[in-house]
């Protein structure tokens, strides 16, 4: 075989000058966020289905448990479990959101976006923004249902700030976990098999139904390393228990604010780590 290269064609036109400003990171991010919102809006089950289980929990199971396990303590069990339910809702919603990323890859849409003149990390952050927005909406809906059912939450500024920060940190971390899984798992079917385990298993150990100190010592130690345990302790500290018993069960210190700061550090640190990992994994797996 030989390569034959000859003269160029004679009918050539000058390359057209179509200089235009580059797509800013923000514009690319906003466009990708809107795209993901538009796609989610066409499949509302992505938003509402993950709500069903936690809302049923908050509206039906938690009150029943509260009734059966009345302790007479300073925290009503209904409010305790309602916050614990956020530890199910946010991971479940974020992890199921990973299916959209696999659909993008399987449909070829991801490849098209990869050909756009924007940094590849923008695609990860575009998905993340939607995941955060959906999580916030779902948590707000859950709290409203819990209040309607009789839960009582503190509404001072610092309490809400702890709660919101912990929720956002947990959502960022779980979305990033979903992004990593979606990048590594080739098929939707396989992903659907893995997702519940990733979203649910930590929740059972994280003090969702009962304080982690009620578990055997080994399981308590395991619970302490789970970011969702720290997130739930922070949420309860902010909304239902300003004495920070959940934080004390983790850290065993006397300064509640310091314990809250440490737990927030765990949640934020885990979220930051997972974001970095998700961007790296996406960039490495999306480009062959």
């Amino acid at each position: 075989m030989s390569t034959v290269v000859t003269t160029p064609p004679t009918k050539l036109q000058p390359i057209a000058s179509r200089e235009r400003g580059s797509t800013s990171r923000l514009a690319g991010f906003a466009t990708l966020s809107r795209r993901r919102f538009s796609l989610s809006a066409h499949t509302p089950r992505e938003i509402f289905v993950p709500l069903l289980t936690p809302i049923l929990f908050a509206a039906v199971i938690a009150p029943a448990l509260a009734k059966a396990m009345t302790s007479g303590g300073p925290i009503d069990y209904l409010s305790f479990v309602a916050v614990g339910t956020i530890g199910l809702l946010v991971p479940l919603s974020c992890v199921l959101g990973g299916i959209g990323m696999i659909v993008d890859r399987e449909s070829g849409a991801q490849r098209d976006l990869l050909a756009a003149p924007i940094p590849r990390s923008t695609m990860v952050f575009g998905n993340l923004s939607v995941s955060l927005a959906v999580s916030c909406f779902q948590v707000a809906a859950l709290i409203v249902v819990a209040v309607l059912r009789g839960a009582t939450f503190s509404t001072n500024f610092s309490g809400i700030a702890w709660m919101v920060t912990a929720t956002l940190g947990l959502a960022i971390a779980m979305h990033s976990v979903a992004e990593v899984l979606a990048a590594r798992i080739p098929k939707q079917e396989e992903y659907v098999g893995v997702a519940p385990a990733v979203a649910l298993v930590p929740w059972f150990f994280a003090g969702s139904f009962f304080p982690i100190s009620a578990m055997p010592a080994g399981l308590t130690a395991f619970a302490k390393v789970l970011p969702v345990t720290h997130a739930l302790a922070l949420m309860r500290y902010g909304l239902v228990d300003h004495s920070g018993r959940g934080l004390h069960d983790i850290w065993g210190m006397s300064n509640t604010t310091a314990m809250a700061a440490l737990s927030l550090g765990v949640v934020v640190g885990f979220a930051a780590l997972m974001v970095a990992v998700s961007v790296r994994v996406f960039s490495r797996t999306a480009i062959h």
């Binding site: 235009r20 797509t23 809107r34 538009s38 796609l39």
Partner: peptide
């Protein structure tokens, strides 16, 4: 699931 126009708009925005 998006309209043709939405697809065109997204492309335009991504390309600045």
């Amino acid at each position: 699931s998006l309209t043709g126009r939405r697809n065109l708009e997204i492309h335009a925005r991504l390309w600045g």
